[in-house]
Every structure is written in C-alpha cells, then in structure tokens.
C-alpha cells in the first residue's frame, strides 16, 4: 500500500487536492489496487452516512436526562490513538442524529435547523483535526446514556436490564477486540470502520435503553 497516497484519499474525495496532485493520484489509482479499494471503502462510508435516517429524540427524554446528569457532567479522560480517533469521528458522525441530539437541551428546535443529511460528509470530520472533540463527545454521550440506564434500571424489568447489560458487554468485548486489531494494523480501513460501526451499535443500544427508561418514568 502506498502510504503517501493513502493518506490523501479523503482529500481527494473532498475535492481538496490541487490539480497536479489530483492527476498524480488518479494515475496512481490506475495501478494500485490497495488504494483503489481504500477509496471505495471511503466512498461507502460517505454513502452510508448520507443514507442515515434522522431520529430526533423527544424533549421529554432530554428533560429526564438533564435532571439526572445535572449541570456539569463528568468527562472521561481520553487516550484514543489516531486510528481510533478516526473511528470515533466516523462513529460520531454516524450517530449524530442520536447521541449528540439526545443530549442537547434544545433538540426539538435544533432539529428544524439541522442540515440535510445529504449535505453531511463524514470523512472531513476526521480529516480536519476535529476528531479529538468528536471522540470526547462520543465518550461523553456514552457516559450520559450509561448514567440514564444506571439510574433508571430499577424501573425496568430485571430480565430486560440483564439482557441489555449482557448485550452491552458483548458489544464492549467486540469494541475491545476491534481496538486491539486497529492498534496492530492501524492503516486497515476495514478495521477502522468496523470499530466505528461497533461503537455506533453501542450508542444505538444505549439510546434504546434510555428510551425504555423514559417510557416507564
């Protein structure tokens, strides 16, 4: 794999390359199957993100979350590696219709202002250096949703709580395995996107659990 060009594929996708670089990269793509596949993978991520359905949480759920987490939610210290930041950035973009909105105090009003998902591009989130913030937001969203589940677990059926927690454990195990794999092979796009997708699954399940808590409150 040609690292020089691999690193610039997202710029190419965004149309940010200078004309001469673009031509050189396209010539390289004609002969490099690895870069061609990586580019195809990046394109799939963008397509997947663009096809995401918006899911706007109810204001009622936010009021419950706000009451529980107070004014200053605890922030977890992050020690993500660069590839994990990429993954977290993708994950955050993937779940932006959920976690970030779920935790915003004025989600309903902002929903009307939210840009068309078709105009959102995932890769630049990682490429512009904002992934550290994205990773913090992801971890913060997980923290907050886990807190909602922890505080509402007594209101849920014990079997339901057990099933939710078992499945969260399964996902955590998968995330840990994917993180180790990414650490060993950081340039592997599949592993990075798999990690991001698995992180997205955790947010989805936590959000589902929070919705169950809200429904019985």
């Amino acid at each position: 794999m040609n690292d020089q060009w691999t690193e610039r594929l997202s710029e190419y996708l965004d149309g940010d390359l200078a004309e001469s670089d673009r031509a050189a990269l396209e010539a390289h793509l004609d002969t490099c199957a690895a870069c061609g596949e990586t580019l195809a993978g990046l394109r799939r991520i963008v397509v997947r993100a663009r096809s995401l359905e918006d899911r706007v949480p109810s204001r009622e759920l936010w009021s419950g979350v706000a009451a529980r987490i107070g004014a200053g939610p605890r922030r977890r210290r992050l020690t993500f590696s660069v590839p994990q930041l990429l993954a977290a950035g993708i994950a955050l973009a993937v779940v932006s219709g959920g976690s970030a909105w779920l935790l915003h105090p004025d989600a309903a009003r902002m929903a009307a202002l939210r840009p068309d998902p078709a105009s959102q591009v995932v890769i630049p989130v990682a490429a512009t250096g904002s992934t550290a913030g994205a990773a913090r937001s992801y971890a913060s969203a997980v923290d907050d949703l886990e807190r909602v589940l922890a505080e509402g677990r007594s209101r849920l059926d014990s079997t339901t709580v057990r099933v939710l927690e078992q499945n969260l454990t399964l996902i955590d195990r998968a995330i840990a395995q994917a993180q180790r794999a990414v650490a060993a092979d950081s340039a592997n796009l599949y592993l990075n996107t798999h990690l991001a997708e698995t992180m997205r699954r955790k947010i989805d399940l936590l959000r589902q659990a929070a919705a169950l808590v809200s429904a019985v409150s």
Binding site: A34, Q177, N188, Y190, H194
Partner: peptide
C-alpha cells in the same frame, strides 16, 4: 489487498456491489 484478510473479486459483469465483513 491484504493477504488473507481483504480481497475483492468480480462475478459476471460486477454490476451489483456486495460487501462481506466478518471480524472473526
């Protein structure tokens, strides 16, 4: 593209796109 880990191939004309991913 990565020995034993990632590869692609074409069936027929390759009109459809199919992605198969299993971590383990």
């Amino acid at each position: 593209t990565r020995k034993g880990k990632r590869f692609s191939f074409t069936i027929g004309t390759g009109s459809a796109q199919m992605t198969l991913e299993s971590f383990q």
